Simulated scan of single mutants.
Amino acid sequence: MSVYIIAEAGVNHNGSLKTAKLMVDSAKEAGADCIKFQTFVAKKIASKNAGKAEYQERQTGTNESQLDMLSKLELSFDEFVELSEYCKLKEIEFLSTGFDFDSIDFLNSLDMKKWKIPSGDITNLPYLIKIAELNKPVILSTGMSTMQDIRDAVQILEEHGLGDITVLHCTTEYPTPFEDVNLAAMKTIKEEFGVPIGYSDHTRGIEIPIAAVAMGATVIEKHFTLDRNMEGPDHKASLEPDELKAMVSAIRNVEISIGNSEKQPAESEKKNMAVARKSIVANCPIKKGEVFTEENLTVKRPGNGISPMKWFEMIGQLAKRDFEEDELIEL
């Protein structure tokens, strides 16, 4: 099964439906399987007293609350209906994370194929139950989480009837320092829960999600933007369209390259075996009846004669005919 690549638009549309549609076009052009947005009613997910994250303050300033910032990034439910239809038209899967119950109910009416639980809600018991009871495949992000947090969340989802869970390793910092990525944690998650694993990436560049695929990720989520210089909290830690396209292409190459666990010559390399390997050849002219020795035999290319692995079997045998120097030895 191919790696499922989510182009995370998030709120990088800056509250503009027109920009969101351009992002759909960009994600489709890049070859992503899915474009994901964030659906929320700002006043239902952030109180008046909620401050901004440090990275949000760096990008949007300190003169407004988190609620004020989020209010400017909302798209209405009607706009999401239009956006969902636009994704169908462009033949790319529409996905959006619902951050509050009203948004979840609305998104459920759009008949999304799967649900994405954000890192910030992995400890939100009522939220987890509501998503589980929708009985659709879930992708669970685990930024800021301990293994116990993940255990608790997976247990809640399973206790409420959910069986199809993919767990994404994630570090919730924008951008994530490379030393904080800890890709090896994906293996720990897979070994403990026996579920498909993936990686939600917030590093700069494309190399870390590519590495994650090589390590077994079946889902990759990566933020992207039309322009990193746009105003907004997430643009600086996002890929631009050409970078997103390069990441998708590289991931497709890596997943093809992984192959299976069996070591054997590839079809493409078999033709080179005779050229690159060596055979036992005459080191000098050898007369019929002469004894093969370590002095009159040697090993040279091509490799379509007797294998040097039979060297000691050859020593002491008699030449059945005359051999010229460099001629392949025959018995």
Rank of each mutant, 00 (worst) to 15 (best):
E294H: 10
A276P: 00
L239D: 04
K263Y: 11
E255L: 07
S307E: 09
T225V: 10
T62P: 00
S16L: 11
Y199N: 02
G305V: 03
A217P: 01
D152G: 02
V167C: 09
V167R: 01
I306L: 14
I206S: 03
R252N: 08
V167S: 05
K236D: 11
N12L: 09
R301Q: 13
R151P: 00
I306H: 01
E93W: 03
I189V: 14
S249V: 06
K288Q: 15
A7I: 05
N272E: 12
D78R: 07
L157Y: 06
N49R: 11
I156E: 09
L125W: 08
I5A: 07
Q59W: 02
L318H: 12
E91M: 05
S109L: 12
K21Y: 03
I139G: 00
L67S: 09
G303N: 10
E294P: 00
D326N: 15
I286H: 00
P209V: 08
M147I: 14
D201L: 06
K48F: 11
G316F: 09
E231Q: 13
P175Q: 06
L125I: 14
M273R: 14
Q317A: 09
Y199P: 01
Y199R: 02
E159D: 15
A53M: 13
E79C: 05
H223D: 09
L70D: 00
M273Q: 14
E255Y: 06
R204Y: 04
M1N: 14
L128D: 03
E330S: 13
A9M: 01
K114V: 02
K44G: 02
A246Q: 11
D326H: 14
E269D: 15
M23R: 01
P233F: 04
E82W: 03
S257W: 05
P233A: 08
I280R: 01
D111A: 13
L89S: 14
P137L: 10
M247I: 08
V138Y: 04
K44E: 15
V41Y: 06
K271D: 12
E179D: 15
I122A: 04
S200A: 11
P137N: 13
P126A: 12
I306Q: 05
E267L: 12
H235A: 07
N253L: 15
N49K: 15
G289N: 15
Q38T: 06
G305H: 04
G205R: 03
L110E: 06
S65L: 10
A185D: 00
T123I: 08
V254W: 02
P118I: 04
M215R: 08
A250C: 11
S2T: 14
E191I: 08
R204L: 14
F193V: 07
S261I: 10
S103I: 08
L162D: 01
D33R: 04
T123M: 10
L73Y: 02
K288D: 11
K116W: 06
K287D: 12
L328F: 05
L226F: 06
K18M: 08
P285V: 12
P177N: 11
K90V: 02
L328N: 08
K278R: 15
I104F: 06
I131E: 03
K113N: 13
A246F: 00
N304D: 15
S103F: 07
L162V: 07
K48C: 08
T203V: 09
N253Q: 14
E85P: 00
I306A: 07
D78L: 11
S103Q: 11
H13P: 00
E179V: 09
D68A: 15
S119D: 10
F193W: 05
K300W: 05
I306D: 04
A282P: 02
G194P: 01
N260K: 13
L297G: 01
